[in-house]
Write a protein that binds this DNA or RNA. Structure first.
Lengths: 185, 185
DNA sequence: GTCTATAAAGTGATAGAC
DNA sequence: GTCTATCACTTTATAGAC
C-alpha cells in the first residue's frame, strides 16, 4: 500500500467521522503519522484528497455490484441486493467514503464536481436499470426516479440512527427498506 | 419585528443555503445590513444564532401541526398531513431552518444540543403518536420507529433533488411518500 | 445599538534544509 | 519524502468611541 493510499484511507475515515470542513490537514497528517506539510507532496490540495476518497469509494462499490448482481436471477433479488450493498457502503463496510459523495458534494469546486460526475453517473445508472426492470415487472409502486431519491435519502440517513450492534440487524433493515419500496406480492 | 428576529430570519436563510460552517458572521451582518461586530450585542455567539433559528423553526412547525391535525378524522389523513407538513417545513415553506436541526446537529456544542433537545423531542413525539396509531390500525407495514427514520431520511434529502417548479408537484410527492409508507388498502 | 479596529486563534499551503 | 518554520488569509469575538 502506497503512502498515497494510506492518506486516502485515513482521510476518508476522518471526513466521515467529522465531516470534510472540520477535518484539518493537520488532523490528517497526525493520523497518517507525518507532518501536514508533507501531505502536499502527495496531493496538491485538501480537495484533491477528498476527490481521491470519493472516486475510490464509488468505484469499489460499483465493482462489488458488478460482481454480485449478474449471479442473481430475479429482479426482486437484484433490487434487494442493491439495497444491501448501498447500505453496507454507507455504513462503511465497503469502501471508506461512499457517503461523502452525497454529504460533502457542496464542498467541491466546479472542477471537482466535474471530475467526480462520471463515477456518480455510473453508479446511478446501475440503480436506474434495476428500478426500470422493477417498474416493468410491477414490483414497485411509484415513479422510479422519485423512488430512487426517496430510497437514497432513507439510506443516506441510516448512519444517524442505526446501531449495527443494536436490536435490529442489517438484514432486517434491508428487509424493511425493500418492503417499503415494493408492492406486497 | 425586532432586530433579533431579523437576524434570526436572515441567518436561517444563509445557514440553509450555504450551511452553518460556511456562513460567516460577516455574511450575516451584511445580509442584515450591520457590521458583524454588532451581531454580538444581540447574541453572545454564532452558535446562539443557530440555536435561535432551530428553536423558532421547530416550534413554528409544531404549532402548525397542532392546529391542523385535530381537524382530521382518520389516521390516514393525519399521517398524510404530517408528511405534507414535514415536507413544507423542509422545503422552507414553513419556518426558516427546520431542516437545520437535522443537518447541522453535529455542529452544536453539548450545551447547545441539550438546549434544543426538548423541542426536537416534542416534534418526534407527534410522529411517534401518529405512527403508533397507524401501526395499530394496520396502515403501515414495518416497525414504526424504523419507518420513522426511513421517512425522515427520505424527506430530509428532498431539497437535494426536488424542484418545486419541476414536473412533479408537491402533492404528488406527498402521495408518493404516503404510498411508500403505507399498505395498499 | 452601531461603528471602526483589532485581538487571538486556526486554516490551507509553501519554502528550503536534510 | 519528510521535517521545521512560516506565510497569507480567514475566522469568531472583543474594545472602546460615538
Amino acid at each position: 500500500m502506497t503512502r498515497r493510499d494510506e492518506i486516502v484511507r485515513h482521510a476518508g475515515e476522518l471526513f466521515r467521522k467529522k465531516g470534510y470542513a472540520r477535518t484539518t490537514v493537520r488532523d490528517i497528517g497526525e493520523k497518517v503519522g507525518i507532518q501536514s506539510g508533507s501531505l502536499f507532496r502527495h496531493f496538491v490540495s485538501k480537495e484533491e484528497i477528498l476527490l481521491a476518497v470519493m472516486v475510490k469509494s464509488i468505484d469499489d462499490v460499483i465493482a462489488v455490484i458488478k460482481s454480485e448482481l449478474p449471479k442473481l436471477e430475479t429482479t426482486s433479488e437484484r433490487l434487494r441486493t442493491l439495497i444491501r450493498i448501498e447500505l453496507c457502503a454507507i455504513l462503511n463496510q465497503l469502501g471508506e467514503g461512499f457517503i461523502l459523495s452525497v454529504t460533502e458534494w457542496d464542498y467541491l469546486s466546479d472542477d471537482g464536481k466535474a471530475a467526480i460526475a462520471p463515477h456518480v453517473e455510473r453508479y446511478n445508472a446501475v440503480w436506474a436499470d434495476i428500478l426500470q426492470e422493477a417498474q416493468t415487472s410491477g414490483l414497485i409502486r411509484i415513479d422510479n426516479s422519485v423512488l430512487r431519491e426517496l430510497l437514497r435519502g432513507a439510506t443516506r440517513h441510516v448512519p444517524a440512527w442505526f446501531d449495527q450492534d443494536g436490536p435490529i440487524s442489517l438484514d432486517q433493515l434491508v428487509d424493511a427498506i425493500f418492503e417499503m419500496a415494493t408492492v406486497r406480492q
